[in-house]
Amino acid sequence: MALKHASISDIAKELNLAVSTVSRALSGHSRISEATRQRVWQLAEQLNYQPNHLAAALRKGRSNTLGVIVPNIDGHFFALVVKGVEAVANQAGFNVMLCQSNEDYAHEAKNVETLINAQVDGILVSLARTTHDFKHFEKVRQRNMPLVFFDRILNGSDVSAVVVDDQHGGYLATRHLLAQGRRRIAHLGGPQHLNIYKDRYEGYCQALREAGLPVEEDLVVLSKDMSLADGAVSIRQLLALPQRPDAIFSAGDFTAVGALQALKEHGLRVPHDVALGGFGNETFSSLTEPQLTTIDQQCEEMGGAAVRLLLEMVQETSLRLTPRKIVLEPHLLMRESSGRRQEA
C-alpha cells in the first residue's frame, strides 16, 4: 500500500498554524522563528511531507523544466547531444523532459502537444526525417514559448537554431578525398528536404567545382533512411556503372559502414581501390577495419549551446522573442579508410 504524503494544510491543521506560516517555515523564511520552523519540520518528517516543486514553480510562472524532442537516441549523436543538454540544464537548475519522435511526423506532433500540456519553459527539437508540415510548431509560437531547433532545423530567418556547418563539413570531407588523388568521387546522400543532407551535398559539390571536376548525377545516390542497408544498396548501384568511383563521401556514418561492408564483399580494398569517408563520428567509426574517416559534429557542444540559447530566451521579458542562430565548426577526423594522406 502506497504511503500517503501530507500536505501543507495537514501540517497547519495539526499545529494550529496558518497555511502561510507553515509554507514560510518550510521555505526557511527569516520572519519565522527558529522554534516554529523546528516544530513544522519535525511534524513534516513524521507525516512524510513531500514538497510539490512543480506546483510551486507553476505558481511563479515557471516549471523549471525544458522539453527535448529528438528523432531517436539509438545512435551516438543524439545520445551525446542529450548528454550536453542535461549537463547545462541541470547546472542552471532545470530538469529535462525527453521525447523521441522515432522519425515519425505524427509522433513528433504528439510530442509537442505533450510538452505544451506539461507547461515546460521551452522546447528543443531536432526534426523527424518524415516531417514536411510544421504547423504543430505554430502552437508553440502562439504561446510565445521559447523554441530552439538543433541539427535538423526548420529553415527560415525567424527561427532560433544551433547547427554544425554541414556544408563546410561536406566540403572538408570531399576536399580530403581529392587530396588523396581521387577524382571520381561518389556521394551517398539523404533526403534533401532535410537541411543537414542538403548542405552536406552542397559542400561536396563545392569541393568538386573548386577542383575543376563536374558533379556527375550517376555518382550521387540518395536514400531515405541513411541506414547500413542503404549503404550496401548504393554500392551495388555504383559498381554497376561502366566506370566505378575511386572514392565515396557518405553524408552519414551508418551508410558509410554499409558501403564498407559491401565493398569488401565485392572484393574491393578500402582505401586502396576505393577511399571512403563518412559524417557523424559515431562510436563504431573508430572500430571498423579500416577505421572510418569522418566528420565530428561537436555533439555535446551542440546540446550545451542549444540549452544556453533556450535559457537566454526563457529569461527574456519581451513579448516577441528575437531569433538567433549558432553555427558550430565541424572537425575532419582522418583515418585509414581514406588513406589519411595530408592535404597540401
Rank of each mutant, 00 (worst) to 15 (best):
L263P: 00
I123S: 05
K110F: 05
T293V: 08
I73D: 05
P245S: 07
E113R: 13
T293K: 01
E312G: 07
E300H: 01
R320M: 15
K264G: 07
S157M: 08
A12G: 06
Q342T: 00
K224T: 13
Y204M: 02
F284P: 07
D151S: 10
D166K: 02
L239C: 13
S9A: 15
Q243R: 13
N195P: 06
L310Y: 05
L268D: 10
N102I: 09
F78L: 11
T317G: 15
D296V: 08
V120S: 10
A229C: 04
R341S: 14
A186T: 08
G122M: 10
D230F: 05
L238H: 13
L292W: 04
R37F: 07
Q100C: 15
Q315K: 05
G169K: 07
L178E: 01
T294F: 14
R152Y: 06
Y49N: 04
V220K: 08
L263V: 05
N16H: 09
P51W: 12
E108G: 06
V40P: 14
V148N: 01
H331G: 09
G280P: 02
D230H: 06
M302I: 06
Q38I: 07
R37N: 04
Q38E: 10
I248K: 00
A128N: 00
N195H: 13
E343G: 12
G75C: 05
V81W: 05
N64M: 12
Q297V: 08
E103D: 12
T288M: 04
L178Y: 02
T317E: 15
A275F: 03
S27M: 07
A106L: 12
N95G: 09
A305P: 00
S223G: 09
T114K: 06
V85Y: 02
A247M: 04
D273F: 00
V220H: 10
V270F: 04
P146S: 05
A207P: 00
E343L: 04
M313S: 15
Q167E: 10
Q237Y: 11
R182Y: 06
Y201P: 00
N90G: 15
I196K: 11
R24G: 05
G303D: 02
A55P: 04
K264F: 11
D253W: 07
R175T: 04
Q342M: 01
D165N: 14
